[in-house]
Write a protein that binds this DNA or RNA. Structure first.
Lengths: 231, 231
DNA sequence: CGGCGCTTGTGAATTCGTGCGCTAGGATGG
DNA sequence: CCATCCTAGCGCACGAATTCACAAGCGCCG
């Protein structure tokens, strides 16, 4: 019963290991070394071993890890041995896509309700569910014992929706809206901003362009200022 | 011309600052302190100052930062002063949503092509664009001078699509497929896995449940083993 | 024109994350 | 039953990121 706290960085990798492990199991392989797991997950093998050591000592020296057992341990640690009912607020482009996303179901997250405020949407059928109004959030959370809410609304509505969710008893929020939301300390929030990653890519892309120019001998002034500032 | 390299951690926050700054500008405020910016971005003010110091010394002591000027500097550094044509591969749930996502356009990313291999989809009109076949990727990249590709395919197809993109000349990839893809060193890849964040939430949620039990005095055995392992 | 208050920018200390390199120890074969 | 091989687990050192605390500097007011 290793109940110590798992580092944030490790937490972000466990789901990746889990996916690799499940794929490995499906291929009929019953044992995997940290080396193979590392390669499939795109990380360093020392990192894999350190990460897995937070779960306990589940490997066998000279052999590796038992795939099925490790899957169980990772699932247990991540809390994926149970099904999590999930509520999605905001049935726009993204909410629509998430409601139909099979990756959630495959990992034990069951979308049990969709809510919105748009009259044209409320009552519509999306991904096997009827869209309900935001005002029903209390009832939905209470009757469905929903702990996790996903916000896919426009930025302007995010805080309001978060407040309503918290009031209804939601304890974890995944926020896709490009806005910082504030909630009581007891509520966990995680944010995914689809455009942030693109902006980071743009940074590196621009940087490559500058480097290419330098390499091609174009813009000698650029070269001078570049090497000067690098120093 | 601060051409030194910006830390990864800072890069992830610059887009957030940028969004806050733009909102601030829209409200007519022309100056902002690191303290206010920090609060709006949900971080520590020292972090804001250190992050911004990587761009140069654009603040005024005793006053703060000029909002408009700072917006320009952040945009310049991130490479957002130009438009980036983007190619989306995989027009399923997610690809569909991204093709219509206004947040991309608002930040200078223009979706110029959608590709898929599904005959039923090729030729269809999605978000103002006609879906084209994967085989046309070379032509699309060449004629549109597209540097950034987004992968929204199922996991199984991700590597193949990535290979085709790279062969066609794509230099940056944003991968939404739940799979690790490998590309030449010259290509930058960033990954967004929608279900990873949910899995992390589940971890914290489960942890809260355990803590609640302990607090309620339920499961004294749990309490014992918990405190033992915490020590 | 000098002092005061405010806020930036940054050295320094600390924490957190990474990765090397080695050792401990189980499995396997003779 | 012993020797050998293989790989997990871990100590340690290094580097990155965070945070504190303060000096430097700007503007404003008297």
């Amino acid at each position: 019963m290793s109940e110590r706290t798992i580092p944030e960085a490790t937490l972000g990798r466990l789901p990746v290991y889990l996916r690799v492990l499940v794929e490995t199991a499906e291929q009929g392989t019953s044992t995997i070394s940290s080396e193979s797991l590392a390669e499939a997950a795109g990380v360093n093998s020392a990192k894999v071993r350190k990460d897995l050591s937070f779960l306990g000592s589940y490997g066998t020296r000279g052999v590796g890890y038992d795939v099925a057992y490790l899957i169980h341990q990772v699932r247990r640690e991540l809390g994926l041995t149970q099904d999590w009912p999930v509520l999605i607020a905001g049935v726009g482009n993204l909410g629509h896509a998430l409601a139909n996303y099979r990756g959630f179901v495959a990992r034990g997250f069951r979308v049990v309700a969709l809510i919105d405020v748009e009259p044209a949407l409320v009552g519509e059928r999306v991904g096997g569910l009827v869209v309900r109004h935001l005002d029903e959030v209390d009832e939905i959370v209470a009757t469905g014992d929903v702990a996790i809410g996903v916000i896919c609304t426009p930025a302007g509505a995010a805080q309001e929706v978060a407040d309503r969710m918290v009031a209804a008893g939601i304890r974890s929020i995944l926020n896709f809206a490009p806005a910082v939301i504030s909630v009581p300390q007891t509520v966990t929030v995680r944010k995914v901003d689809l455009s942030i990653e693109l902006q980071i890519l743009a940074y590196y892309e621009q940087r490559k362009a500058v480097l290419d120019e330098v390499k091609d001998g174009r813009g000698s002034l650029g070269l001078a200022s570049f090497s000067a500032s690098v120093t």
